[in-house]
Computed example of a mutant assay.
Amino acid sequence: MTDTAISRSALMAAAARAAHLIVDSAPYVFEDRLAAPLLGDAADELIDYHRQHGDHPVLSGARAQVLCRSRYTEDTLHRSGFSQYVLLGAGLDSYAYRATAGVRVFEVDRAATQDYKRAAVSKAGATSNAPEYVAVDFERDDLLSRLAAHGFDPQRPAVVSWLGVTMYLTREAVERTVSEVARLAPGSLLVLDHMLPEPDRDAAAQGYVAAVGAMTAANGEPWLSFFSPADLAALLDAHGLTAEHASQHEILGARTDALRPSNLTWMTRATVRP
């Protein structure tokens, strides 16, 4: 992936959210009716994979991952009552354009992804409730300083989502971001998903890794970090955050369509302690 290209994983995540409303059955796990418009010219091609092969374990597994993390995160935000929402690695997330008034949204990402998204938003005509676009080089920039420059209030608690990212980072990079989130106001919530290490995966999860892992690496986005719930809880605790976890099984429940939970990714919600 070059510095001027949008992440392939961001496109695939948006396609999974869009395809859920087409190939899966109600009740829907998560409804994002802006996902397809934000894909722009890539929408038909990416969604067609799901239309034609929606019950394939790789595609249904991808939908399960994306839907679980989106549902869990936005449920957390709505229950929190907080008025500041930060998306780290926002990709093509559409919350800002679906949200009701009262929540200020800060989308943190690479400048190239944000340029792509601005163009897609304009083409889709989604003009209300625009977020604050915060371009950050995670290797060089101080996250809180960049957020504050865009109007973020560090004295008030916030929900921070970090979805579909940790598996592409080294453990050191994950710790660095966690240490920055730990500087937020007490009570702030970090919501993230993480891939489980091989001993914790079930057969469906291991099959997904075998089928997809080499392809993601070839696309320039190799998986680098895997965390068990206990390992991640210890890492978060060391930086002053208290963690709780949720599995795909808890979020999806029993369904009659192709969506099946697996032990591939889990969700973690962590609270910044005083």
Rank of each mutant, 00 (worst) to 15 (best):
Ala233His: 02
Leu190Glu: 03
Phe106Lys: 12
Asp193Ser: 02
Gly187Ser: 05
Val160Ala: 05
Ser145Trp: 10
Ser80Tyr: 05
Asp193Gly: 00
Ala126Pro: 01
His20Cys: 09
Leu232His: 02
Leu163Val: 10
Ala42Ile: 01
Ala135His: 09
Ala90Glu: 09
Leu143Trp: 07
Thr177Leu: 14
Gly89Asp: 13
Gly220Ala: 07
Arg51Gln: 11
Ser7Ala: 15
Thr216Phe: 15
Gly164Lys: 03
Leu235Glu: 10
Leu264Gln: 06
Leu252Lys: 05
Ala62Lys: 09
Val159Asp: 01
Arg176Phe: 00
Ser60Gly: 11
Val181Phe: 05
Pro199Leu: 12
Leu241Ser: 03
Tyr208Ile: 12
Phe82Pro: 03
His194Gly: 10
Val159Asn: 00
Glu180Asn: 05
Glu172Gln: 09
Leu264Asn: 07
Gly91Arg: 01
Asp137Ile: 14
Tyr28Trp: 12
Tyr72Ala: 15
Thr265Arg: 07
Ser228Asn: 14
Pro222Leu: 07
Asp93Ala: 07
Asp3His: 13
Arg110Pro: 01
Ala42Cys: 02
Gly61Pro: 11
Gly54Asp: 07
Pro154Leu: 03
Ala246Phe: 08
Ala120Asn: 03
Tyr208Ser: 08
Ala42Leu: 03
Gly54Val: 05
Pro157Asp: 11
Asp115Trp: 04
Pro197Val: 14
Leu34Ala: 12
Asp44Met: 11
Asp141Trp: 09
Asp231Gly: 12
Leu264Tyr: 14
Gln52Phe: 00
His20Asn: 10
Val272Thr: 10
Leu87Thr: 04
Tyr116Pro: 08
Asp32Leu: 09
Leu252Pro: 01
Thr166Leu: 14
Phe138Arg: 01
Ala246Gln: 14
Leu144Asn: 04
Val165Ala: 10
Arg255Ile: 09
Arg269Gln: 14
Val136Cys: 14
Gly54Met: 06
Glu250Asn: 05
Leu46Phe: 06
Ala238Ser: 08
Leu38Arg: 07
His20Tyr: 12
Leu241Ile: 02
Leu38His: 06
Ser161Lys: 00
Leu196Met: 15
Val174Lys: 00
Val29Thr: 15
Gln52Ile: 02
Pro27Gln: 13
Ser94Arg: 11
Ala36Phe: 07
Pro57Glu: 14
His20Glu: 12
Thr4Gln: 12
Asn263Ala: 15
Leu92Lys: 00
Asn129Ile: 02
Arg255Phe: 10
Ala10Arg: 07
Trp162Gly: 04
Gly125Lys: 13
Asp257Asn: 07
Leu192Glu: 00
Gly220Cys: 08
Leu189Glu: 04
Gln248Ala: 10
Ala124Ser: 04
Ala36Cys: 08
Gly91Pro: 03
His78Ile: 02
Asn219Gly: 15
Arg98Phe: 07
Gly91Tyr: 00
Ser225Ala: 15
Ser80Lys: 04
Pro37Thr: 05
Ser161Asn: 00
Ser228Leu: 13
Thr268Arg: 06
Ala126Met: 05
Ala26Val: 08
Thr242His: 10
Glu244Gln: 15
Arg104Gln: 12
Asp237Cys: 01
Met12Glu: 07
Gly220Pro: 04
Tyr85His: 13
Ser262Ile: 08
Ser7Val: 08
Val23Gln: 07
Gly213Leu: 12
Glu244Tyr: 11
